[in-house]
């Protein structure tokens, strides 16, 4: 098969990861709404029901808190459930089991149990989905001890990350993204896993570091390309892991460029960007040539109207404006 033929959608890469792991390990089961013949709300589980059947794919009623709790119970008994929450906003309905069970059990039960479950959910706005179907809630998740949080940005990344998450003995939330699902990229066919705690330099540069994750990484890369002709050389550091943060990679890039803009689709306040900024000020103040800047969603619900949505969500031109500000500082 040529490389061209292995250029597949992000959603298909998720599907391949699930398919591989279902085939590899019979303790892997899928749990979620409409993941059977419908193939999942975004087509991610397409074909898996025909291949693995009802014994492996547990199609649930609309009962998020309990089916996440069921995954916790099954994981305590040695299965490796992979749960789909259809839209990240619906995580609110399952927060108790994530916060009070999945994240705490291994620690509070003195190491007697592990909870090897994965919770996959698409965050982010796709354009017009409105207030209850559009949020990137990474800021909520990174405040829950005991849960690893990853937000891969490319098809190749999501495949290797999801497979690693499924094999990890701890609860892992894999934040997918509705705007990434239809993006394509080269994905190796072979079995591979990627580190759950490592950031990657998506594009190296000398002048300014853009730190991003999930759907904002391709936007940052586009901004890099757009500013190349005017002689601005941006570095794009893709966090991949939000909890834990890869501090070494963050600090190395900051020390290289001395200027940092953190770009994320989540609300500005109290999230990943705020945490990264705090870490940089604690550890790299001497290397900074300008204040750390942030480009994020406004602290607002996301309106349905496309005409309004763009004013709440971070846009490429907001990043360009931040680049201008940080250069002029």
């Amino acid at each position: 098969m040529t490389d061209d033929e292995r250029t597949i959608y992000y959603s298909k890469a998720v599907n391949e990861a699930l398919d591989d792991e279902l085939a590899r390990d019979d303790s892997v089961i899928l749990i979620g709404e409409d993941i059977g013949c419908y193939g999942g709300s975004f087509g991610v589980t397409k074909g898996l029901y025909d291949k693995y059947g009802a014994e492996r794919l547990w199609e649930t009623p609309i009962s998020e808190n309990s089916f996440v709790g069921i995954a916790v119970g099954a994981a305590m008994m040695g299965l490796r459930p992979v749960v789909e929450i259809m839209f990240m906003d619906f995580l609110a309905l399952a927060l108790d089991q994530l916060l009070n069970s999945a994240g705490k059990l291994h620690y509070m039960y003195g190491g007697q149990v592990t909870v090897p479950m994965v919770l996959r959910t698409p965050g982010g706005a796709k354009g017009g989905y409105g207030p209850s179907h559009s949020q990137m809630l990474s800021n909520l998740l990174v405040g829950i001890p005991g849960i690893k949080v990853v937000a891969p940005s490319t098809p190749a990344q999501v495949k290797g990350i999801l497979k690693a998450a499924i094999r990890d003995p701890n609860p892992v939330v894999v934040i997918e993204n509705k705007r990434l699902y239809p993006q394509r990229g080269y994905v190796p066919a072979e079995d591979y896993v990627l580190a759950l705690d490592k950031a990657v330099i998506a594009a190296a540069g000398q002048d300014i570091t853009l730190i991003s994750y999930s759907s904002m990484t391709p936007v940052c890369l586009a901004v890099k390309e757009a500013l190349k002709p005017v002689g601005i050389d941006l570095e794009v550091l893709d966090l991949v892991s939000l909890q834990p943060l890869d501090k070494e990679s963050i600090f190395a890039s900051v020390r290289k460029t001395g200027r940092v803009i953190i770009v994320e689709e989540a609300c500005l306040t109290g999230g990943v960007g705020a945490e990264v900024s705090a870490l940089i000020s604690e550890h790299c103040l001497d290397a900074l040539e300008a204040p750390v800047m942030r480009v994020a969603a406004a602290d607002m619900p996301i309106p349905s109207a496309l005409a309004l949505e763009k004013f709440v969500l971070p846009q490429a031109e907001d990043i360009v404006a931040a680049v201008k500000r940080i250069r002029e500082y």
């Binding site: 547990w58 808190n65 709790g69 069921i70 099954a74 305590m76 299965l79």
Partner: peptide, 17 residues
């Protein structure tokens, strides 16, 4: 009520195995 789905999930695992 937090333990009710956990027990249900344990039962799922028992049935699966």
């Amino acid at each position: 009520g937090g333990g009710i789905p956990i027990a249900t999930g344990a039962a799922l695992a028992l049935k699966y195995r």
